[in-house]
Computed example of a mutant assay.
Amino acid sequence: MTPTTALLAAEDINPLVPATYDIVWSFVCLIAIVFFFWKYALPVFKKVLAERTNAIEGGIARAEQAQVEAKAALDKYNAQLAEARGEAARIRDDARAQGQKIIEEMREQAQQESQRIVATGQAQLAAQRQQIVAELRADLGRTAVDLAERVVGESLADDARRSGTVDRFLDELDAMSGSARATTAGE
């Protein structure tokens, strides 16, 4: 046996259990540390945690407020967009209506111009017809007098007689052509 082993055996001390003075001084140190921690460190930790909690809760509140404002802005934007779409649709409808009105006005003007041109053409045609009829009457009168002079054998140079004969002849022709038209129309 060695002397340390003998000493241990003589005192009957357990090596796993510390000595009483170590336990007392360790307890005193622990109390001092707990007091220091409780008095100085714990309030600082509580203060920092409270600030962080306030910051987080404030951030959440600000985020919720910003979300509410964003939703209001989105609703306002959507309302303005719907209003703008309605305005655009109204403008398109107005433009279509104005386009239709312009087309109708142009169509009416074209019809009036067409009617004016047709009326002018008919007037010119009637004037030309009258001129041709007058020329034909005069020419037909001269031809009729020449034929009558040849048939009768005497001169019909007297203007008064000649004019009366020509007028009578033309009236008879008009009467014949008028009855021929009436007969053709009746069929």
Rank of each mutant, 00 (worst) to 15 (best):
V17G: 01
V34E: 04
V48G: 01
E105M: 14
A134L: 07
G86T: 00
E87K: 14
E64T: 00
V24R: 04
D171W: 04
L147H: 08
D171V: 00
G86V: 00
R129K: 08
A134S: 11
F27W: 08
R116I: 06
A9K: 11
Q131L: 00
F27T: 11
R52C: 07
Q67W: 06
E108G: 04
T4D: 07
D94E: 13
I33D: 03
G121R: 10
L125H: 10
V151A: 08
V34H: 06
I13R: 15
T165S: 15
N14S: 12
L125F: 12
L156P: 01
D22C: 05
I103C: 06
A160N: 15
R92L: 09
T2L: 09
Q100R: 15
M1D: 10
W25F: 10
N54Q: 13
P43C: 00
D158Y: 04
Q100H: 07
I132R: 14
A9C: 06
T120S: 01
R142P: 01
Q111S: 05
S177H: 10
A72F: 12
L140N: 01
G141N: 08
V151H: 02
G164L: 15
V68S: 13
A32I: 14
R90L: 10
Q122M: 08
D75N: 12
E135C: 05
A119F: 06
A134H: 10
E113I: 12
F35W: 15
L147S: 08
N54S: 14
E51H: 12
A63M: 12
A72Y: 12
D171Y: 07
A10S: 14
A110R: 15
R137H: 09
D171F: 03
A63T: 12
R150A: 13
A138K: 15
A138G: 10
Q124A: 02
N78Y: 02
G121N: 14
E104I: 07
L8R: 11
A19R: 13
P3I: 09
Q80M: 11
E172G: 11
L16A: 08
L8E: 08
D75Y: 07
D146Y: 02
S163W: 02
Q130L: 12
E187R: 15
P15K: 05
F169D: 02
P15I: 11
Q115D: 14
V152R: 04
L140W: 13
A95K: 09
L74G: 04
Q80N: 15
N78K: 15
A82V: 05
R90N: 04
T120A: 09
K76V: 00
V133M: 11
I91Q: 08
V48L: 14
F45H: 12
A123G: 09
A123C: 03
W25P: 00
I102F: 07
A19I: 04
A182V: 05
A127D: 07
A148M: 03
Q124Y: 09
S26K: 08
D93G: 07
L147E: 05
W38A: 12
R96Y: 01
